[in-house]
Design a protein around this nucleic acid. Structure first.
Lengths: 346, 346
DNA sequence: ACAGGTTACTCAAACGTTTTCGTGTTGAAA
DNA sequence: TTTCAACACGAAAACGTTTGAGTAACCTGT
């Protein structure tokens, strides 16, 4: 077992000073050709690699970015991470991941653990609890300490930092328009309680599209599901809720659902009620994940380009980190959505 | 913007030495009650937090573990990470993630980036390319440098380290037995080309179960799909392959598939061919992901307890890191599988 | 009055780098 | 022979922390 070799050891071995070794390895002209060769050969032989931690301490930068997300077992978020990783790797950065599990205190703990020198900046999407509590002190504090933050998807307007968001409003408009174009007249919306602005925006987009086509929005056509219903355990109660929604509104011919699960479950319930898709009911979901692709019928969906979102967030952060001048002009970048048409629409 | 405060600044401000501040904050009895109070009050006021990087350098440990996986947009792997994170957080460790994207060189680059001091140990699942090339120098080298490594799922027997594996063999036996118990007589297997031992083991389990019940294994009943077919783009060609498999073997009444996608696709094809599930064909998949739960009919599947796997891997690694004595006894921990019965079997 | 002991500190080294400044040796020009 | 640049290298500080060793100042008992 040969331990990592340091400059000091090389120096002792070759009977030169540490500085000489350091300079020789950097091909400094201060060092004679002879010594350079010798040092470099030795370093290669012992597979010398500079210690990152020491470099981080010296340079006061770690070349690492911290990512805090509510949940990783989730197509959207893992895709975002994948995008972040890609951009980070190509620019020589590492990614350290913290999960909040939708809990405020976990989010705070995780951020504090990382904010003490471990990373150069944050990319994060806040937890539901944080949105509910509206307690953003951990965010303002880290930003005030001069640590750059990029928020994505679930962003907070009051916080002054770079942001990357999905054009949820426009996505919902597109989806609803599509249904209208396809001849739907009674379009239902399955959404969440709207303290998360993502759900709110999608609802607004849905309403806007109806309005544009002079369709009067029926309050009954909107189902606001309790968020807890999204959890894997609560599938049946979600199904029941959707089933009674369908039974109350028997004549629905289109559904916009704000996520994949709601859409898939709606299709499942429809099948149970012998409603034919897409003939008598067309369905469009959000988030182009595995479920949409593999469902039968496959689901038409609004793609949010999660990977691109991650790349953009990482790009903004790293640009910020590597910018010389300290002008703080924060950007909000909007990722456009695409409608991926599959079998659940005509 | 108030920057992070250091011991040195506190020391200057209070006109004591750095060591006094350090000791005062640690409540050392060397320091008078008076000074302790003063220092601690000041530190609280300025929200002092020790710099992690400096600590890492001093202690020669980072309290960070590196995780290298082939792919993160994947239910199994993200679940494993989730488990790792959970255990890591509870023991005060951070998790830094590297993605190989199934590429050997990415795996090597990522490991080298992290191995130079950034982390205390690795948890990894090797890429397909690495298994193909059988080049493990990066693994042996890091282990030789004294850095602990825990491999999971896709492990390499030649490498001497802690391992966490799924009991794939037994899982396949269970699945196949279940089908046999349910009255299946012609059971097909949809698997991958077997240079990944996971696929190999599952195939062996399938064969073992047949043998135990004196069922002669038909070579035709085994479909070895090219791995590329798993990629999201290649869905149709996978469907075609499975369709012709069904057409050649018209009398199949049971299917064991080595992953979710194959199982779901098999069900999709069956539906197209008007084969009723589970009446005339029963299907069992591997990996209990979202698809299994939400498919119609929902898929009976072999659960691998990915989260538990991550937790165990992290536990092994951290135990190893924190062990005083240097005895190197490596453990291979096997995670048992569970058969989750749903609608695709009787 | 003084050894010995306590108290409350400070010093300095160490972790592994990089980099600025200094310095001894050479060789050449004057 | 003197002077001065060029050359090749070393010393030391710095990043922020911990910690063992060192040291004043004071107190106590004889």
């Amino acid at each position: 077992m040969k331990k990592k070799v340091t400059l000091k050891q090389i120096a002792k071995e070759l009977d030169v000073s540490i500085s000489t070794v350091s300079k020789a390895l950097k091909n400094s002209i201060e060092i004679s050709e002879d010594t350079r060769q010798k040092v470099q050969a030795f370093a290669k032989l012992y597979n010398y690699r500079p210690n990152n931690i020491a470099l981080s301490l010296k340079n006061r930068k770690t070349k690492t970015i911290g990512v805090i997300i509510p949940e990783i077992v989730h197509h959207f978020f893992s895709k975002v991470i994948s995008g972040i990783e890609k951009e980070a790797l190509s620019r020589g950065y590492n990614v350290i991941v913290g999960l909040s599990n939708e809990s405020f205190s976990n989010e705070v703990i995780n951020m504090e653990m990382l904010a003490n020198g471990s990373i150069d900046g944050f990319i994060l999407s806040v937890s539901k609890e944080t949105m509910l509590l509206q307690d953003y002190h951990h965010l303002t504090e880290t930003i005030n300490q001069g640590m750059p933050v990029v928020m994505f998807d679930r962003v907070i307007n009051e916080i002054n930092c770079d942001k990357v968001i999905v054009d949820d409003f426009e996505g919902a408009v597109k989806a609803t328009n599509k249904l209208i174009e396809n001849g739907c007249e009674k379009i239902g919306l399955i959404t969440t309680k709207d303290y998360i602005n993502v759900g709110k925006l999608r609802t607004q987009g849905y309403l806007k599209a109806l309005e544009d086509h002079q369709i009067f929005p029926e309050a009954d056509f909107i189902l606001k599901v309790d968020d807890e219903k999204l959890s894997e355990e609560n599938l049946e109660s979600l199904e029941k809720e959707i089933e009674s929604f369908f039974k109350v509104n028997k004549n629905l011919d289109g559904i916009v659902a704000v996520n994949e699960i709601y859409a898939i479950t709606a299709m499942k319930v429809a099948r149970k009620l012998k409603i034919k898709i897409p003939e008598s009911l067309q369905v469009i979901g959000f988030t182009d994940g595995v479920l949409s692709k593999h469902a039968v019928p496959s689901l038409t969906t609004v793609s949010q380009h999660a990977s691109q979102m991650g790349e953009k967030a990482a790009e903004l952060l790293i640009n910020n980190l590597e910018r010389e001048d300290e002008e703080e002009v924060y950007e909000t970048f909007t990722i456009q959505t695409d409608l991926i048409e599959r079998e659940s629409t005509k």
